[in-house]
Design a protein around this nucleic acid. Structure first.
Lengths: 235, 235
DNA sequence: ACACAGTCTGAACGTTGTTCAGGAGTCGAT
DNA sequence: ATCGACTCCTGAACAACGTTCAGACTGTGT
């Protein structure tokens, strides 16, 4: 259903203009909708409200997106590219431990600044299972899995350098545990009103503290004693 | 709005019968609805379907529950009592480490066998925030927080016995980290189709493996070296 | 000038949660 | 036995949702 080269001819002047206007319209809808989704969450955002915000009739949106879910998934996919790029920058660090710590920090920050995106990326309403896969499969594995594979890669490096305790010979369980830990911290930060825990008798339960504790215990738990103090270039 | 002692008289025979029938009706609705919620999830369950299942008209349900959300929260609260009781049994164990490990195991099992309950208990649609609190506040802290306090209690015991590394002087961050880790494992098990990870080159990524890895790294990371091997009665 | 393709509208459909006037039955008192 | 009061239940209705579609409108290419 490509709009461009449907009839095997070079596009005329006005054709490329329409194409551009179409892209602008798509961008406009996505921008407006993104703000609403991030602020109010998926269910609270109405197609009629979006239509009102862009000053068009509800039906118009369906000319640019299959349905509400497709619109949201498109926004999700776009923003997810940022996260992936953001995280992949960590891979240049020499020390795989630093890679993991920095990735955890960035991942957590992204999740907390995009709570509704995070929510729906990692916790889609279970009715979506099939359709989200349609949207995910083509773009290689799966968003979550890509993150997992990044972590897995760092863990593999750490194993090959003999930094992990001997009992950890497989990378996948270690990576899965790291991911679950970060995921749990982010989820709890997003879902539970944090001030609930503040009244724990003056103990520090800030997000930073919890992330530090998590990464600390992972470092202590997975790494050999000797490599625990931070070292720069290890190659 | 209590039905019973509204008029300050001793209830007559037929009044207590109606009271009982009312309770039976409530139980019947909850039983039917619970099955549907557990199987299909919150959004997929329709009040009209529930009404059809109990062979009444949709409006009838509103005589027993304020609305759909109240019905679900009531079911949630009921089932949550089971979890709490289940977990509190762990507190009788002598060794606080065993307490934490066993609690983690039971918690994870409950979450995985009640995925939709778990989902909505710890990840309510954000529009609920206010109303869920209305339903939670009266029953002392909060469901999640109660679990957290159980963990915190075990951690406090461990600290007082000098089992944790010296740097962990506060119980709350440790308990929060433990909880986040378990929560993450459960979440990922519930939300991501597990078989996605199975193709990791024959590595074991079963739920048991991930739970073992998690508890293992927590034991290694939080505990002093000397107390790591399992000991029975430590008192 | 004409036909055609793309764009937008506004009404409509089917579902959803929820409300409400009213019918039907039951209980206690007269 | 009869009457009022009370509770229960129904079925239609309402508003709002996502979604569809026939048709008006606009501009382009011939």
């Amino acid at each position: 259903m490509d709009r461009a080269q449907e009839k095997c001819q070079s596009p005329s002047v006005s054709e490329i203009r329409r194409e551009r206007e179409r892209a602008e319209m798509v961008a406009r809808i996505m921008d407006v909708a993104r703000d609403m989704f991030v602020r109010d969450g998926y269910e609270a955002v109405t197609l009629r409200k979006i239509a009102e915000a862009i000053e068009y009739s509800p039906g118009t949106i369906y000319q640019y997106f299959k349905d509400k879910q497709a619109l949201f998934m498109k926004i999700l996919a776009t923003d997810y590219v940022d996260l992936r790029k953001n995280l992949s920058e960590c891979l240049v660090l020499e020390n795989p431990v630093e890679v993991m710590v920095e990735m955890a920090r960035r991942y957590a920050m992204w999740g907390i600044t995009h709570p509704n995106h995070y929510r729906l990326l990692l916790m889609p309403p279970q009715a979506w299972e099939e359709e989200t896969q349609d949207l995910r499969k083509p773009a290689s594995p799966t968003p979550e899995k890509q993150l997992f594979l990044m972590l897995d890669q760092a863990v593999k490096v750490a194993i090959s350098r003999g930094m992990l305790k001997e009992k950890y010979t497989e990378s996948a369980p270690v990576a899965a545990t790291l991911w679950a830990g970060i995921h749990g911290v982010v989820m709890l930060e997003i879902t539970t009103s944090t001030e609930e825990f503040a009244q724990l008798g003056g103990q520090d339960l800030s997000l930073e503290k919890r992330l530090d504790t998590l990464t600390g215990v992972f470092v202590d738990g997975f790494l050999k004693e000797k490599v625990k103090p931070r070292r720069r270039s290890n190659a």
